[in-house]
Simulated scan of single mutants.
Amino acid sequence: MMESSSPLSPVLSLEEAAAYIRRTPKALRCLRERRTAPAGFRTGGRVMFRRAELDDWLAKHEAQDSRTNPALDPTRVAPEPRRRRPARQLAA
C-alpha cells in the first residue's frame, strides 16, 4: 500500500499529482514521455511533483484555452471574406 502525503504537502507522488490535475496516472505518465507534463523530479526511484509546478502548469493551459481566454476565441474574429474562383473556360 502506498503512503499518502499530508493534505498540505508541497510535494506529491505521481498518483497524487494525477488526481490533483484530474487525470489518470497513465495519462500523466504519457504526458511525461511527451515532455508536456508539469515539471517533476525523481527521488528514490519515484516521480514526484511540486504542487506549485502543477498549479503553474494548470494556469498555463487555462490561458491557452480559447474558452477561458477571450483573446483566443475564434468566434470573436470576423470571418474571412469568401474568395471567388476564376471562371473556367470551356473547350471549343
Results as ranks from 00 to 15, higher is better:
Ala87Tyr: 00
Ala39Glu: 14
Leu58Pro: 01
Gly45Lys: 04
Ala63Cys: 05
Arg46His: 15
Ser9Val: 03
Arg32Met: 13
Asp56Trp: 05
Asp55Met: 09
Ala27Ile: 04
Ala19Arg: 09
Glu16Thr: 05
His61Lys: 12
Ala92Lys: 11
Glu16Val: 07
Ser6Arg: 08
Arg46Val: 14
Asp56Phe: 11
Arg23Gly: 00
Glu16Cys: 07
Leu54Thr: 03
Met2Ser: 06
Asn69Lys: 04
Thr75Tyr: 11
Asp73Met: 07
Phe49Val: 09
Gln89Thr: 13
Arg83Met: 08
Thr75Asp: 13
Glu15Phe: 02
Ser6Cys: 01
Arg67Asp: 11
Gln64Pro: 03
Arg35Glu: 15
Tyr20Glu: 11
Arg82His: 00
Ala59Gly: 03
Gly45Asp: 11
Arg83Ser: 04
Pro79Leu: 02
Arg50Leu: 14
Ser66Cys: 14
Leu8Pro: 00
Glu3Val: 10
Arg46Tyr: 14
Leu58Gln: 12
Phe41Pro: 06
Pro86Lys: 06
Met1Asp: 10
Gly40Thr: 10
Leu72Gln: 02
Arg22Pro: 00
Pro25Gln: 05
Arg67Cys: 10
Cys30Arg: 15
Ser66Arg: 13
Ser66Val: 10
Ser9Gln: 03
Arg83Lys: 08
Arg67Ala: 14
Ala19Glu: 12
Cys30Gly: 13
Leu28Ala: 01
Met1Tyr: 01
Ile21Gly: 00
Arg76Ala: 13
Ala92Gln: 08
